[in-house]
């Protein structure tokens, strides 16, 4: 066992990278659930985004275009969910599960021929001055653009939900869709837009795995991050900053356990591998013991009756 091989600066830097896919997917799902819709298809939208982004990046040679395509791919899959649940009034749980299975199959189909291919590398940000700082520069200021985009989206979502009228209306729709309808708000339109946003975020989260984190294409490579994102939203009590905290915690423990594995610590690998899931959920369960609760209309089908 050789713990000295673990470099704390590199560890903290890779924490932010490891957390980003989860952060993107979870903050998207948070907006969806705040609007009162439960989309269990996050995993499917992520993997679809992962392959769409990968394929476009490989074919065009432009990774940024790939990220855009991933957002589009996730949103298209989410649109299918929106049509099923908002217009055909299908059950949200069943539709979401179906969406995950469909996304896994669809991505495997598109992904044939992309295995073993290397995507174009993603440009790293290099901010003169900041990135050259000792320690902090390496940890905070020399990541790729997507890490900062994730943080930006969390901040924007928090600000929108708390301080803007659009956010108030979104929360109102998730809280009591009948009352929102009676006041003349377009419940379905607002929900469809939220679902599309959630799909785009999940897609980008998937692309982050296939283009930056790994970077290559393997079937089923999201490996349950979508499900963790769903749990994270609940245990974070639908609060954006707690989602950020949970995602970084998850990323941190993931990175540490990988380093411990590499250092040959005398704990069976299986326990190390399950530790990020256990610790994240444990911490968030303890934190969610306050009285915050789910949006009251979450998962309920809205039908404007007479």
């Amino acid at each position: 066992m050789d713990l000295s091989s673990i470099n704390p600066v590199l560890l903290l830097a890779s924490l932010m990278v490891a957390a980003t896919p989860l952060l993107l997917a979870a903050v998207g799902e948070l907006v969806v659930e705040k609007a009162g819709v439960l989309n269990l298809g996050v995993e499917g939208m992520m993997i679809t985004g992962a392959i769409c982004g990968f394929a476009i990046a490989v074919n065009t040679g432009d990774p940024l275009l790939g990220v855009l395509a991933a957002a589009g791919g996730g949103a298209v899959l989410a649109l299918l969910f929106a049509l099923l649940t908002q217009l055909a009034l299908a059950n949200q749980v069943a539709s979401g599960l179906g969406l995950t299975l469909f996304g896994l199959g669809l991505s495997a189909l598109i992904g044939q021929g992309y295995q073993g291919v290397r995507p174009p590398s993603f440009p790293r940000l290099n901010i003169p001055g900041l990135s050259d700082m000792p320690v902090l520069g390496r940890i905070l200021f020399s990541h790729d653009l997507m890490v900062y985009l994730g943080l930006l989206i969390v901040t924007a979502v928090w600000f929108m939900l708390k301080y803007t009228r659009a956010g108030l209306i979104l929360r109102a729709v998730g809280e009591n869709h009948e009352a929102a309808h009676a006041l003349g708000y377009k419940v379905k339109r607002i929900r469809i837009m939220a679902i599309l946003f959630g799909g785009a975020c999940a897609g980008m989260g998937g692309a982050y795995i296939s283009l930056i984190r790994v970077p290559q294409w393997t079937e089923g490579m999201t490996a349950g991050i979508g499900w963790i994102a769903l749990a994270l939203v609940v245990f974070a009590s639908w609060k954006p900053w707690r989602v950020l905290l949970g995602a970084y915690l998850f990323g941190g423990v993931t990175v540490i356990q990988l380093n411990l594995q590499a250092a040959g610590v005398a704990i069976p690998v299986e326990y190390l591998a399950m530790s990020p899931y256990l610790i994240t959920i444990l911490v968030l369960v303890i934190m969610s013991a306050d009285k915050s609760r789910a949006p009251a209309s979450l998962g309920r089908v809205f039908h404007a009756s007479r």
Binding site: E175, N176, A180, L183, P295
Partner: peptide, 24 residues
């Protein structure tokens, strides 16, 4: 004023009122 109050339980009074106005 609705029979079954068209209010949002999780929001505060001012937010509820703002939702019912055109240009709050």
């Amino acid at each position: 004023v609705f029979q079954h109050f068209s209010l949002f339980d999780a929001l505060n009074v001012a937010e509820n009122i703002a939702l019912g106005m055109e240009h709050p």
